[in-house]
Design a protein around this nucleic acid. Structure first.
Lengths: 119, 119
DNA sequence: CTGAATCCCTGAGGATACTG
DNA sequence: CAGTATCCTCAGGGATTCAG
């Protein structure tokens, strides 16, 4: 990366930075253990049922899957569709906000891949 | 975001995805409580001394500052310059890799700001 | 099938004191 | 100035069981 690009960012972050740090704020929302894996699996296959999603993520407990999904709902990254049938049929979907988040992760994807390979 | 952009990403992540998730990998490196604040302060003012950095970050303990800096060093996001004088004089600097990481955070910055304002 | 309710444990992080 | 060394707390997460 060229120095100038970085300097522009410093200038931008310096002027736009409020009392809080937007990056830290974002990280709080998606930083817990299972958020990214869940969003990831929903991205690759949207509208999955609870148990299917659980199998896809792998090794996650009911407790954590439910808790994570509830938080993702609260933050409007995921929405829950309930057919209100018996037995229940529920599917989980990415919202536009969730898709936008994943889109911003493109850079982190490349960066992670790069440093993982350079070991 | 248009649907097509997202679809392209899904396709890309689907094909490039190895056994591990690069995003989760990145998050492990920068996900602990003080990493972003430290990188942030170093970006705004590179080459700070230990105690100055500590004051800038605010509320961080010696234990955590040292630990975080050591990990950032290991991951080559930060390097430590020691003058080897008595009393000691040490400064911390962002590496190119560290700057690249922060650059990738631009999207997350905007995203965090957006959802914070929409509350 | 989609969870909720409990109980439990580890480890991230904090408080405090000390040092070359 | 730039850290170490100890000790301690608490909350994130896991295991298990139960339920509509």
């Amino acid at each position: 990366m060229e120095q100038q690009v970085f300097e522009k960012m410093v200038a931008r972050f310096n002027t736009e930075m409020p009392e809080y740090c937007p990056i830290t704020y974002s990280m709080k929302i998606i930083g817990s253990k299972w958020k990214i894996p869940i969003l990831w699996k929903l991205m690759l296959d949207d509208g999955q049922h609870y148990n299917h999603l659980k199998r896809m993520v792998g090794n996650i407990t009911n407790t954590m899957l439910t808790k994570s999904l509830r938080e993702l709902e609260e933050n409007k990254l995921v929405y829950r569709h309930d057919d209100k049938t018996v037995p229940p049929s529920v599917t989980y979907h990415l919202t536009d906000l969730g898709k936008e988040l994943i889109y911003t992760m493109n850079g982190l994807f490349d960066w992670g891949q790069k440093i993982h390979n350079s070991n």
